[in-house]
């Protein structure tokens, strides 16, 4: 699924929630079921600096798509990571760069994003974009 299709799907899912508790119960559930993070990458090198909780992010390329492993010690952050991975994991670098990051706001998670500046999620979004940028520029310089 392309990032934009994934965002539309998420928007449909979130439209079903009538209050914050349902929304959070869903995010917490996603967090509990996030795929396991490879332990060899739980190092300072892959740590996204945050104040409130710890976040690890390991981006890598498989073929012509970008993949991510990520984890946090806070389950709500893990749930938000799961949302980000639905959008970005397995996309091409160009697709990632073409996807605006404001979907987190349009999903009604804006309140949380302002906090996430502190707990590392905004930093993670930025890292994903920077990684995609690096991959894309390598592709472009190889083809030129």
């Amino acid at each position: 699924m392309s990032p934009s299709a994934a965002i539309n799907q998420l928007a449909d899912d979130f439209a079903l929630f009538s209050d914050w508790e349902d929304k959070y119960a869903y995010i917490i559930d996603l967090g509990k079921h996030l795929r396991p993070y490879p332990e060899q990458y739980r190092t300072d090198e892959f740590k996204v600096r945050g104040c409130q909780s710890q976040v690890w992010l390991h981006p890598h390329v498989e073929g012509n798509t970008v993949h991510f492993d990520a984890d946090s010690d806070a389950v709500i952050v893990r749930g938000l990571i799961a949302l980000l991975m639905r959008v970005y994991d397995g996309a091409t670098a160009k697709e990632i760069l073409d996807t605006p990051t404001d979907f987190v706001r349009t999903l009604g998670l804006a309140d949380h994003l302002s906090q996430n500046r502190a707990n590392g999620l905004a930093a993670m979004l930025k890292q994903i974009h920077l990684y995609a940028l690096a991959v894309q520029s390598r592709l472009e310089s190889a083809s030129s």
Binding site: Y24, I28, Q52, A74, I76, V77, Q115, N119
Partner: peptide, 21 residues
């Protein structure tokens, strides 16, 4: 088994301001 920041986030949504970290 629960991270302080998760408690802080949920309490915040209830209008209760505490600190986590």
């Amino acid at each position: 088994g629960i991270h302080a920041s998760d408690i802080g986030t949920l309490l915040d949504n209830m209008g209760i301001a505490i600190r986590a970290g």
